[in-house]
Design a protein around this nucleic acid. Structure first.
Lengths: 253, 253
DNA sequence: CTCTTTATCGTCGAATCGACGATAAACGGG
DNA sequence: CCCGTTTATCGTCGATTCGACGATAAAGAG
């Protein structure tokens, strides 16, 4: 197709074990990008930044940045997360999503990006970031409105959304959206907003309280949602759910 | 930790859009590695190569190689697959697995690898490769015996195996191990060998023939497995199975 | 023809699901 | 204080699916 910049890595600097990288390698710049989701104001929202430099100046983009020397991929993702949101601790859920390396995805040259999916409760993401001053929450339903996302970030966001929707089916990852203590109804609202579906409160309650290791009751109650007091729960330690909680099949009218 | 080679990409060569990459970037070498699985001689086996160069000279490794200029990631994976196995067509199943980029994973410098998972029937993988002359099949149960795999390939293989075991639960990917036409018993054998579990032939038959889009009957029969003639099937077009075929829970004796 | 092997169909009880009725426990307004 | 509203939680019922397993069908071997 074309020929992006191909500097030869200076492989003679550290010839460990007497071996060196081949001299005609493609060197690429490596970045991490984040699909950070939260539930805010009764909507599933994604953290975006307004780009301050070319290319795609002023266009919305996923937060991210280049990997530093000596830094592992997950490490770089956690660092970017802290820089963009002021998040102190690693988020409740962070997983590698996929890697995007189409040769022309960045007009500046060959940039390969490793995308991560992060889920966090609203309280943990104050957006006190200093790096990209213009970071903000956007409802995922409107993320494609207006000027499109920079680079191939629309694809990455779509993949991240699908992963999140699928992940909460067979794991307890949805609790990562919740505060440390939450009610069954609050968790149900998470599922409903992520899936854009309505769930039966009685069947949902039976399911989540009946699956071992999903929820841990605290014995305390709250009325913050109105109505009869609801018991408060914490996340359990079950990594996967058996059986899964499947998305409702879309109904035809 | 340390400082791997950090050549600055020659970003002035193609200043597309008037923008250039920052000058102090970490440049990394980018490779793809393959976890190519097949079922051969009543065992789940993985394609390995004996390394012909340092580092890890003569140690077994996953097949793979560096990404070329202008080449997409999946494209590089398909090319490596063809070079290592003589495979003409893309395999029945090929998916991106994960990306591994720990700073010290390659002693020669910063090499990040994108791992792919491929599933293929035995007949499609003649190993007529010219590139790494010493490629061979190894049962996954013994892949960790003898000298360990090079680099972090043991981790990549373990991740690939777990992905394969999980993938055939909720998709029809297991048919990628089969010849174009196969019997229900042959497909069951695949599941048994991938899961290291015994499955009830009657329940399995009910399940796979009762799930819409999983199998397409051909109307023809074979006795190649002995006993009563079994009907031949082809893969259906269902991307996912509803409901899933879950692995049996490990029994305690 | 009989035995062995494999394929396929059926049956039964347990578990789970979706739809929905019923009750419990808070609140606010009169 | 009573009552309607809101939300939480418990139960019931029929349909579906599952695992365990019996029964029958159709080939080859001897």
């Amino acid at each position: 197709m074309q020929s992006p910049p191909e500097p030869s890595p200076d492989t003679t600097a550290h010839p460990a074990g007497g071996a060196a990288l081949p001299p005609d390698l493609v060197a690429v710049a490596l970045s991490v990008d984040l699909v950070l989701l939260t539930v805010r104001k009764e909507r599933l929202q994604v953290l975006l930044v307004r780009r301050g430099i070319e290319p795609f100046l002023d266009r919305p983009a996923l937060p991210g940045g280049f990997v530093r020397p000596g830094e592992d991929l997950a490490e770089a993702a956690v660092r970017e997360l802290a820089e963009e949101t002021g998040l102190r601790h690693p988020p409740a859920h962070l997983e590698q999503l996929a890697t995007y390396g189409a040769p022309q995805r960045d007009p500046r040259g060959r940039v390969v990006t490793v995308a991560f999916l992060a889920l966090a409760p609203q309280s943990r993401t104050p957006i006190a970031g200093t790096d990209a001053a213009a970071s903000y929450w956007a409802p995922v339903a409107t993320a494609d409105d207006g000027p499109g996302l920079a680079f191939d970030h629309a694809t990455i966001l779509a993949d991240g959304l699908e992963r999140a929707r699928s992940k909460i089916e067979y794991s307890a990852a949805a609790t990562a959206f919740c505060e440390p203590e939450f009610t069954v109804a609050e968790l149900r609202r998470i599922y409903e907003l992520v899936w854009s579906a309505r769930l039966d409160p009685r069947n949902f309650h039976r399911k989540v309280t009946g699956t071992a290791g999903f929820l841990v009751p605290t014995g305390r109650f709250t009325t913050r949602d109105g109505g009869r007091p609801a018991e408060l729960y914490r996340r359990g330690d079950a990594p996967v759910l058996h059986p899964a909680m499947l998305r409702p099949v879309p109904r035809l009218p």
